[in-house]
Design a protein around this nucleic acid. Structure first.
Lengths: 133, 133
DNA sequence: TTCAATATCAGTAATTGTTACTAATATTAT
DNA sequence: ATAATATTAGTAACAATTACTGATATTGAA
């Protein structure tokens, strides 16, 4: 039987969780690191990465790989969709009902089993739309 | 006026195009490199990367960033969807009609403009389903 | 309340995927 | 052919992430 590693409390991990709590801007590890450092000047970037992937395993955060080269992190683990602005690159939440029925559509002519999907929407965000005027 | 860089023929680029032609397995740059080297032992990985991004600019290939850490390349530039197997990590095509209407759904309660999307489906591929038995 | 076991840390080095640089080579229009 | 220049191989640089190490913090039990 695999010896389950017990998880000990750490201030650093708590700070990361607190920092992410309620955020909607899906920061990168680097961004989180820079801000946590204001309270914990000695925290290392490795600690941020290690804890983010631990929190991901624990199901407390979601990693968003939207293809811009950096992973982004989201404390909202409920299934939802993201938008990436072609202008400014910001990653925003999309408010829409679940579209799980596309799994069934996708499974129609497919040999295997489909149980999930990720969708990224692209365009120009509200803020950048305003700038165009 | 921007001096358009004219594009000269190169055997290496042709070899890459030929190698990708008709493939359905969405290889990575590294994979392409290893195989092209059988015919062109001196080709460098940089050349593969450079040509792949050139071909992408030319609209001859599509780069797939599915979040497994490696970019994959697809000679099929028609809009279509991909599946990623949770077991073996293979990236497969999904045969399904366009679901562009989800853009409209997504734009409903969204401030900005939405003009495209990417969707990745997850599950267990046919081959891995068989292995489970 | 010690104390031993060990998870976590900071700091740093290593890895990995990708891009940039450079002098030599290949292609193309003339 | 030749001149202009795009492309190359090879290598170095880069950025994001992960692994390593000895020191430190947390925890359950004595």
């Amino acid at each position: 039987m695999a010896a389950e590693k017990t998880i000990k409390y750490s201030r650093q991990r708590e700070a990361i969780v607190k920092f992410l709590e309620g955020r909607k801007d899906h920061p990168t590890a680097e961004f989180i690191y820079r801000h946590i450092r204001e309270d914990y000047p000695n925290i290392s970037l490795g600690t941020v990465y290690r804890n983010l992937s631990l929190l991901e395993e624990l199901g407390q955060v979601i990693k968003i790989s939207c293809g811009d080269g950096n992973d982004h992190f989201d404390p909202n683990v409920e299934p939802h969709y993201h938008f990436i602005c072609r202008e400014c690159g910001s990653v925003l939440d999309i408010e829409m009902d679940s579209i799980d029925f596309i799994n069934t559509l996708a499974e129609k002519n497919f040999g295997g089993r489909i149980d999930g999907h990720k969708a990224y929407f692209y365009g120009v965000c509200h803020q950048c739309c305003e700038m165009e005027k």
